[in-house]
Each structure stands twice: as structure tokens, then as C-alpha cells.
């Protein structure tokens, strides 16, 4: 099985003492990995280091065998990501935003843009300015921008933030469909344990910057999470 992500000794410390410390993580192609942790545990820092948005203090990240630091473009090309709030040029429409993104990849057609808009339920809003969108619609656009390049690895940081029930169900369905049809790898961080439990087949608990893993489902994820937090606090 090809490795989608290999993280070795990843450390990033901020001045306030927060960050991540010596994270080692290996994710196979096709896995859906959930990252769980309390606020400030380092989930977003880990995802930013995985996508080159932040440089780590130590350690390395390999995406599909390409080192992120030394071979950035090859490593990041098969990756789609939504990290933090959805990023968009708000005085433009979602279609124009996606068109601009498509110029940076080869082979993205008009149909691919339409498909990404359709998957996220934005087809009827495609020519409206993003500035008029609600938070949930902006989040839908963020997900569309992560899907547009048909990536082999999709990294989503709190993707359900601001989504209504329709959006939540659509997101869950889209992730399950893409994963089963195309074998795409997902790394998803969320506060919603129940949402991750429905989607993911492996979990990474990030508590006080340290990672631990849970693969089987003999216990409820909530119980395991509480146990891990208590262990870390001792």
C-alpha cells in the first residue's frame, strides 16, 4: 500500500509554549484519518505543517514519497486542503475563484469546476459575489476549492464549521463517495466526535502537542477521547 503521508519527528513550538512536539504519523492511501483534540492542542498547526503553510522547527513531511521541504511542488500538487476559514477573493464569484485556482493545475476543465460547485451545492450561486455568502456557504466554497484539482489527499480542518444540516449531510456523503470511488485519502480535524466517528477509520488524538492513535472501535470514541485527555493531565 502506497503511503500518502509520512511524518517524522515533526516539531513546531510557538512563543506561547503551544505547538506540536515530535509527531510521527504514517497514513496509507485510501484511509480516512480523524484528528481529535481540545482547543489549542495543535491540530491546525499539524495540518499547516503538513501543507507547507508553516515551516516546522524540526522533522519532515513526505506526501506520496515527495519531501515537502525540498520538493514542494511535487509534494503539494496531489493535495487539496481547507485549513481554517475558507479562503476566497470575496469580490469575485465562486466560479471565478475556482477558475483562478484551476490555472495553477494542468487539466482542470470547465466541467470540473461545475462538478465541484455541484458537489458542494453551489451551482445556483456560482455567479454571485462571495462577499454576499453566509458563513456556511463560504465553507461550502472552501470545500469546493479543496476538491477542484481532484486531489489524492484531502486535508480538512474543521470542515463542518458553519455548515447547516444539509451542508453537513452533503459533506458526509461527498467524503464517503469520493473515498469509496476514487480511494482518496482524507485527513479531517474536528471537534465533533460523532461526526468523525461516522466518517473515519483511524483516529489521531492530539493532546498538549503529543499524538497518540486509536484504530479499533471496541469502545466508543468519546470514552477513548476522555481517557486520553485524563491520561495526558496526570
Amino acid at each position: 500500500m502506497e503511503k500518502a503521508v509520512v511524518i517524522t519527528g515533526l516539531t513546531k513550538q510557538y512563543g506561547n509554549g503551544r505547538g506540536i512536539q515530535d509527531i510521527n504519523l504514517s497514513i496509507d492511501q485510501g484511509e480516512i484519518v480523524g484528528i481529535l483534540g481540545p482547543n489549542g492542542a495543535g491540530k491546525t498547526t499539524l495540518l499547516k505543517c503538513m501543507t507547507g503553510l508553516t515551516s516546522p522547527d524540526q522533522g519532515s513531511v513526505e506526501l506520496f514519497g515527495a519531501d515537502l521541504q525540498s520538493n514542494f511542488k511535487n509534494a503539494i500538487t496531489p493535495v487539496g486542503a481547507l485549513i481554517g476559514p475558507a479562503v476566497a477573493y470575496e469580490n469575485m464569484s465562486p466560479y471565478k475563484n475556482l477558475k483562478m485556482i484551476s490555472r495553477l493545475y494542468s487539466g482542470i476543465t470547465h466541467e470540473d469546476i461545475e462538478q465541484a460547485l455541484c458537489l458542494t451545492g453551489l451551482t445556483s450561486y456560482k455567479d454571485e459575489k462571495i462577499s454576499s455568502f453566509s458563513m456556511g456557504m463560504k465553507q461550502r466554497f472552501g470545500i469546493a476549492s479543496a476538491l477542484i484539482s481532484k486531489p489524492r489527499l484531502i486535508i480538512l480542518d474543521e470542515p463542518t464549521n458553519g455548515l447547516d444540516i444539509d451542508g453537513l449531510l452533503l459533506l458526509r456523503k461527498t467524503i464517503q463517495e469520493i473515498s469509496s470511488k476514487s480511494g482518496v485519502t482524507f485527513v479531517i480535524s474536528s471537534h465533533h466526535i460523532s461526526e468523525l466517528e461516522k466518517l473515519c477509520n483511524r483516529f489521531c488524538f492530539l493532546i498538549q502537542g503529543q499524538a497518540s492513535f486509536y484504530e479499533t472501535r471496541n469502545q466508543s470514541l468519546e470514552d477513548v477521547y476522555i481517557m486520553k485527555v485524563e491520561e495526558a493531565c496526570r
Binding site: 501543507t51 507547507g52 503553510l53 514542494f72 511542488k73 493535495v79 487539496g80 476559514p85 479562503v87
Partner: peptide
């Protein structure tokens, strides 16, 4: 300020 400066795209 708007968070659009650095994105996860294949551009150095």
C-alpha cells in the same frame, strides 16, 4: 489580513 496570501497550491 484576509488570509488569502498563502494557500495550499502548487506554486513556490
Amino acid at each position: 489580513e484576509r488570509g488569502t496570501l498563502l494557500q495550499v497550491r502548487p506554486i513556490s
